[in-house]
């Protein structure tokens, strides 16, 4: 299987690449459109800011190729947020694969932001490799709108999608590579 890890030059690919190694997979790390389009599976990781990431996607000519992928693809954290129409983070137009907006989480007493740590999830889609009650690791200040694409949800002040699914795309707001045994189940299910 050819798995491409999209390298936007702004994320930490390290933890995802090493996690795939635990499944015996050596991903192709690239930003080349042809390589991405010809992959069996694609992972779009992301740590950083939406504005900078979309700028990189534009500069690398990846907007069209990413939007028209047909093979199974997974966006992680910022990589999931980029699938939506628009992010409030630096008022950024994103890929528009999933309808909805990405909004800032508002802190409140007893509710610090970033949402950082292990949150319990409710699972709506039985084919994610996850079960309701699993704890998954989150680290984010912006969150996607809850909507028809939500496949698993967590709560941090408001309900936030932990996993979204739309066609060939999956998005994980949590970090599967850092979510222990439950995260490994999720990754394994995507890699199968």
């Amino acid at each position: 299987m050819k798995l491409v890890l999209v390298d936007l030059g702004c994320g930490n690919l390290g933890s995802v690449r090493l996690a795939l190694g635990r499944f015996g997979i050596e991903p192709v790390v690239t930003a080349d459109a042809e390589e991405i389009v010809s992959a069996d599976k694609v992972i779009l990781p992301g740590v950083g800011a939406a504005g900078f990431a979309m700028e990189r996607i534009g500069a690398l000519g990846l907007r069209g190729p990413l939007s028209s992928l047909k093979q199974p693809a997974l966006g992680i954290c910022l990589g999931m947020q980029l699938l939506f129409d628009r992010s409030d983070e630096e008022a950024t137009d994103c890929l528009g694969i999933i309808p909805g907006q990405v909004r800032r989480l508002e802190p409140a007493p007893g509710l610090p932001v970033p949402h950082m740590g292990w949150s319990r999830v409710e699972v709506r889609d039985p084919e994610l490799g996850l079960v309701s009650g699993d704890y998954l690791y989150f680290a984010h200040s912006f969150a996607c709108d809850d909507g028809p694409a939500t496949a698993a949800s967590a709560t941090h002040g408001r309900g936030i999608p932990a996993v979204v699914r739309s066609g060939n795309w999956l998005g994980a707001q949590f970090h599967p590579e850092r979510s222990g045994e439950a995260g490994a189940r999720f990754l394994e299910s995507f890699l199968q």
Partner: peptide, 8 residues
């Protein structure tokens, strides 16, 4: 924070 986000 600008390049990698506050969360890290």
């Amino acid at each position: 924070a600008r390049d990698f986000g506050s969360q890290c």
